[in-house]
């Protein structure tokens, strides 16, 4: 599994990390008990500050997605506990949008940014 950070994205790097790890857990790529890379390893590999990865891990821990076990590292605990399952009609609409986005070659970040922009313009309208 690959994590990808876009430094030019309006979404902060720690949030990108948090979203992608959560998506891997929800998608079944990461299972309960899987060990995540150490903060230092992930920060080195991604070329970002250790504090950014640490913050993403803290957010994931407060979401209930991971637990930290000292020297044993960060371990996947399961899907986020705070996040209630989205309504069925939203899942259907999201699938349709994801299908369209992937067919046009858009990345996950671009697709999520477009949703945020659409939401923001909807609120200001």
């Amino acid at each position: 599994m690959i994590l990808e950070i876009d430094p030019q994205s309006p979404v902060s790097p720690y949030e990108q990390l948090r979203q992608q790890v959560t998506a891997h857990v929800l998608g079944g790529g990461l299972e309960r008990g899987d060990r995540l890379p150490s903060i230092r390893q992930l920060a080195n590999d991604l070329g970002i500050a250790g504090g950014t990865v640490a913050r993403a891990y803290r957010e994931l821990e407060s979401d209930g997605v991971v637990t930290t076990h000292g020297r044993h590292g960060t371990i996947v605990a399961g899907p986020p506990v705070r996040q209630p399952p989205p309504p069925a009609h939203l899942i259907t609409a999201a699938r349709s949008y994801a299908d369209h986005a992937s067919r046009t070659g858009a990345s996950l970040d671009d697709a999520l940014t477009a949703v945020r922009v659409a939401f923001a313009s909807e609120r200001t309208a």
Partner: peptide, 13 residues
Amino acid sequence: VAGTRRKASLSRR
């Protein structure tokens, strides 16, 4: 070296 978009494996080394 990493390109503009930075990628890393989730495998723990």
